[in-house]
């Protein structure tokens, strides 16, 4: 059975998406991508700084990588739309991760502005993957607006605290008919596996890999964890004892059932 992830018709061979921020050295990135098996890689756009020596980040990404530029830096829908258009014009492809954050303390996304950005960008043919705070109504609106997937946070960016929003993510997985990709907050491979066991379509990991002592090994671990979690989900959970002692029987009255025809 083919379990390949499909996003807007594109086959994505790995359910681990990789963020490329916070790495000590761009040279790590191709090794991390290889070790993890990731196919979708996020990048960001920034204004150049006259003073800093410039490197072409794209040269570090292997052929066949699906680029997902994010709109980080945008505080409003208008800014996100602008960045998305620039990225596409620059040859980054149709995919865009919408990230609209005006909260500098927790880096929590603005669902409201995100919905507005999706409405415009989806009409322009972008494959939009919005980063959002797990809220069912907001996710429905994002789906209606034309999002190709929904990316709820597991915990605030960079906190590595794991799947704190588990219950709400579960609701999204049940109710929204789009791939649900847990993005942000996953700190350990087991947490990525946990998200996959719930039924997430994929996970996006950045900080946990970039800041590990051995990013390449951590990338490999996450790659394996995502596969394990997915298989665990597909295999179906075993029977677990949910009830302790049976309290007084509830269907005993049927036991000596003289069939009473109504």
């Amino acid at each position: 059975m083919d379990d390949t992830l499909l996003i807007r018709g594109t086959r994505v061979e790995s359910r681990l998406f990789l963020g490329t921020g916070k790495f000590a050295d761009y040279n790590l990135i191709p090794r991390v991508i290889k070790a993890s098996g990731a196919k979708v890689v996020t990048v960001a756009l920034r204004r150049v700084d006259y003073a800093t020596p410039e490197e072409n980040m794209l040269q570090y990404l292997p052929e066949g990588t699906i680029l997902m530029p994010n709109t980080s830096g945008a505080r409003t829908a208008a800014e996100a739309i602008r960045i998305a258009r620039i990225a596409r014009e620059a040859g980054c492809g149709d995919w865009v991760k919408i990230e609209v954050i005006s909260d500098q303390k927790y880096l929590l996304p603005d669902n409201f502005e995100t919905i507005k950005a999706i409405e415009v960008l989806a009409r322009e043919g972008f494959v939009v993957l919005p980063y959002m705070s797990p809220d069912l109504m907001a996710a429905k609106r994002m789906a209606d607006a034309g999002a190709a997937a929904i990316m709820p946070l597991g915990a605030p960016i960079g906190t590595n605290r794991g799947l704190k929003t588990r219950e709400l993510v579960q609701v999204l997985i049940s109710e929204i008919n789009l791939p649900i990709i847990v993005d942000a907050g996953l700190g350990r491979p087991s947490e990525a596996a946990e998200a996959m066991e719930l039924g997430a379509a994929a996970v996006l990991v950045n900080t946990a890999i970039a800041t590990a002592d051995d990013p390449v090994l951590m990338a490999e671990a996450f790659g394996l964890a995502v596969q394990a979690g997915r298989k665990g989900y597909l295999a179906g959970p075993g029977a677990t004892q949910r009830f302790a002692e049976a309290s007084s029987p509830l269907t005993g009255f049927l036991r000596n059932e003289a069939e009473v025809t109504p």
């Binding site: 049976a246 509830l250 269907t251 049927l254 036991r255």
Partner: peptide, 14 residues
């Protein structure tokens, strides 16, 4: 069977 039905009943009650 009656045992399974009782299990269902306990779950439904809860």
């Amino acid at each position: 069977d009656p045992t399974s039905l009782e299990d269902m009943a306990q779950a439904a009650h809860s």
